[in-house]
């Protein structure tokens, strides 16, 4: 924030010094060069012969998808129901596990810094592994089916719900907690009166939001054998039945739309 004065003595203010201004330009130049370099690397690694007829391939695919084979839909109700069950039960299970973990992970409610580290480790490891990978591991352990899907969704949800919830806990007003402690309340009572009412809206919002994400994620779990509509999708793609694939796409689209609508309504109602 350099301030100089003109020969007439009036002060001149500029946000940056000349030096930092030029450093800024240089950084933009370096960024642009990096972008062009990456462009070239990608371009060299692309087989352009395939890309050249992408339009034809795409329209060919769409023509094979249309018209959708509507009669196929009646075989999809059961897998779709499975998918929603995987998402809902998985979310419920995940929330049940994430709830205590969040309280152990929040700086202001954790009983001990070591416990906090352990809780954060659980959250990070749950978050760092995609639910599809969890599902692959669990199908190997538990065998294919809905159960593997439910647990995969639950394990992935712990990290998401746990992280957002512990952040909400750390942002509560400390004075009601102080006031409840001052009445001589026990540790759990302070949590249930001082902390819980303050994080309840955030908790409900996070849970519904995660449920809505899980509906989307559970549609692909079948690709690795963890039950749900993904199994049908996989089978349809493998047998090149594109007019069935389009039915599945539509069905997933409508379900996700509905779940997002519900989630948005619930979150709107809480806040």
């Amino acid at each position: 924030m350099p301030v100089t004065s003109s020969p007439q003595g009036t002060p001149i203010w500029r946000l940056r010094t000349t030096r930092t201004q030029w450093l800024g330009y240089l950084a933009w130049l370096a960024g642009a060069c990096l972008f062009l370099l990456c462009w070239k690397v990608i371009s060299d690694n692309t087989m352009w012969v395939f890309v050249e007829d992408a339009g034809r391939q795409g329209s060919d695919l769409i023509s094979r998808m249309l018209p959708p084979q509507w009669t196929y839909a009646h075989r999809l109700w059961k897998p779709m129901w499975d998918t929603m069950n995987i998402a809902t039960l998985g979310t419920a299970l995940g929330i049940a596990m994430a709830f205590p973990v969040a309280f152990l992970a929040a700086r202001n409610t954790t009983p001990h810094p070591l416990v906090r580290s352990a809780a954060l480790l659980i959250i990070v490891s749950s978050r760092s592994i995609n639910s599809l990978i969890w599902a692959m591991l669990l199908v190997t352990i538990l065998g294919p089916g809905v159960l593997a899907g439910i647990i995969a969704i639950a394990l992935r949800s712990i990290g998401f719900v746990g992280k957002l919830l512990y952040e909400a806990i750390e942002e509560i007003h400390p004075t009601p907690v102080e006031a409840i402690s001052a009445t001589g309340a026990g540790r759990l009572q302070v949590m249930s009166y001082g902390v819980l009412p303050q994080v309840l809206p955030a908790f409900a919002g996070i849970s519904v939001y995660r449920w809505d994400i899980n509906i989307r994620e559970s549609t692909v779990l079948g690709l690795v054998g963890a039950g749900g509509i993904g199994l049908q999708l996989n089978a349809a793609i493998n047998s090149l039945a594109w007019n069935q694939v389009s039915v599945i796409f539509l069905m997933i689209f409508v379900t996700v739309l509905a779940s997002e609508w519900i989630s948005a309504r619930v979150r709107h109602a809480i806040t």
Partner: peptide, 22 residues
Amino acid sequence: ALVDRLTVMENVLSGRLGQVGF
């Protein structure tokens, strides 16, 4: 330092927390 989302009665009764089980 009231708990905003609780009712007035709950806030007042919280004065007894030290004498009531969890």
